Simulated scan of single mutants.
Amino acid sequence: MDFSGKDKATYVQETFNSIAKRYDLMNTLMSFGLDKGWRRKAVRTVEAKSGMHMLDVCCGTGQLSIEIAGAIGASGKVTGLDFSENMLERAQENIYSSPFQSVITLMQGDAMQLPFPDNTFDGATVGWGLRNLPNLEQGVKEMYRVVKPGSMVVSLDMAKPTLPVFKQGYWFYFDKLVPWMGKIWAGKARAYQYLHDSAVEFPPQQELAQIFTRCGLVETRYQNLLGGVVAIVSGRKA
C-alpha cells in the first residue's frame, strides 16, 4: 500500500480528515443503506445494556456511538475516541442532532495507547477501524486492557467473502466502482482507493478471531454479514 512517503498513522489521519464531511453519505451509498443494521447487530454483540459505560474506539462520525447510546439509555455513558479532528467535529454535529448529547463524550486520542486505566469499561467496540491501525494486535490488546473482566470486545469491519462469482463481483465493485463513487460524491477517489487497499490487506474474519484469542480474549467468534462482505468479530475478557 502506498502511503506517499508517510507513516501509516499520519496517512490515515490525513485521509479521514479529508473525507469527514461526506463520510456518512458514502457509507450509506457503498453499503446500499445496510450499514445502520450492521451497527445495530454489533451493539447487540457487545451486550450493551442500560447504565453501562461503553468505549467506541475509532468512533469516526459517531454513528456507532449513537447506536450504543440508544441501548444503554440516559443512565449510561459512551466514550467515543478518534484521532481525526475532522471526523470528531462531524461526530459532534451528529450527536447534537440525536437525543444522546448527555450520554456521549468525544475525545481525540490514539487507539494504540488508550488514555484510560485498566478495567474501566463495560465493553468496547471498533467500527471499520482496526484495519487503519499501524499495529492491529496492539489495538486489540489495548481494548482488552481497558474493559472489565467479563466484558466484550467487538469489531465491525470489512471481511473476505468466499462464495465464487459473488466474491469476484464484490472485489470488482470495491476496486473499481467505490473509488469512482468517492470521486463523484466526495471528490476523493484516492481516499476511497485506500479503503479498498486496506480491506485487501486486512486479515480475513477467521484469522482476526484467532488474533483476538492471541490477545487474551475468550469465546472468540465471527459473524458474517451479507455473505462475508462485512463481519463482526468478538471476544470476551475472561
Rank of each mutant, 00 (worst) to 15 (best):
I184E: 08
A238R: 13
Y11M: 06
L208T: 12
Q210D: 14
A20T: 07
K167V: 03
V154L: 09
E85T: 12
I19T: 12
S65Q: 03
Q223E: 15
K148G: 02
T120L: 05
T220R: 05
N27M: 08
D118I: 01
G123T: 05
L156C: 05
G123N: 04
K49F: 02
D157E: 15
P203M: 04
M30E: 03
P117G: 08
D7V: 12
V178P: 05
Y194E: 10
V146K: 06
A111P: 03
E137K: 15
K176Y: 12
T162F: 04
Y192D: 10
M181E: 01
S98R: 10
V230D: 00
I68L: 15
M52L: 12
I66H: 09
F32M: 14
W180R: 12
F3N: 13
K41G: 00
K41N: 08
Y23F: 14
Q13M: 11
S97C: 08
N119E: 14
S234R: 07
F172W: 15
A199C: 07
E207G: 05
M30V: 14
G228A: 06
T15A: 06
F121M: 06
K176W: 11
A191W: 02
E89I: 00
M54H: 01
Y23E: 10
P99K: 11
S65Y: 02
K183N: 11
I232Y: 01
Q92G: 10
K167P: 00
K36V: 10
Y96S: 09
P115I: 10
K141T: 03
Q193E: 15
V233I: 15
M112C: 09
L88A: 00
A189C: 04
Q205H: 14
T105D: 10
G76H: 09
R190Y: 01
T162R: 14
L217W: 12
I68C: 05
V57T: 09
P99Y: 07
R190V: 11
G109N: 10
